[in-house]
Amino acid sequence: MITEELLPCLQGIVPATIVTTTKDLMPNASIVSQVFPVDDTHVAISNQFFSKTFRNLQENPHAQVQVQHPEKFIPYLLNLKLVRIETSGDLFESMEMQLEAIASMTGMSDVFKLQSCYVFKILSIEDFRHAIEWN
């Protein structure tokens, strides 16, 4: 479940880390600019380039994403499972708008295009606030 506490982590302020594996469970970590909230139980990430992350997801739909609260710096670990890939519709369009806005400002409109968005079901969320307890 996406709580109000978690929402600020899904604004794209702090980039997220996503871990996927091949079918032989060889892990790969990569940085994504934003994990988008879709509804209470789903998030999405954007695919602009067909990188290893997306190749891995074809082989193993499970992924782990670490997001961070932009003000409190609390890390959360999201255990996800890929449920569908969208190339049109409201979610796709709203993610596309964000990408277009940023890409056009950096003069990269022509290369930075949203190919598809990957929608994941949230299986569980782990709160890692103890990791910053020292503060």
């Binding site: 604004q11 794209g12 302020i13 702090v14 980039p15 940085i31 600019s33 934003q34 932009p70 964000q98 806005a101 940023i102 890409a103 400002m105 950096t106 990269m108 930075f112």
Partner: peptide
Amino acid sequence: MVGMPYRMRYVQ
């Protein structure tokens, strides 16, 4: 849009 400079840096 929030965190715009970070996103721009990511794209760059």
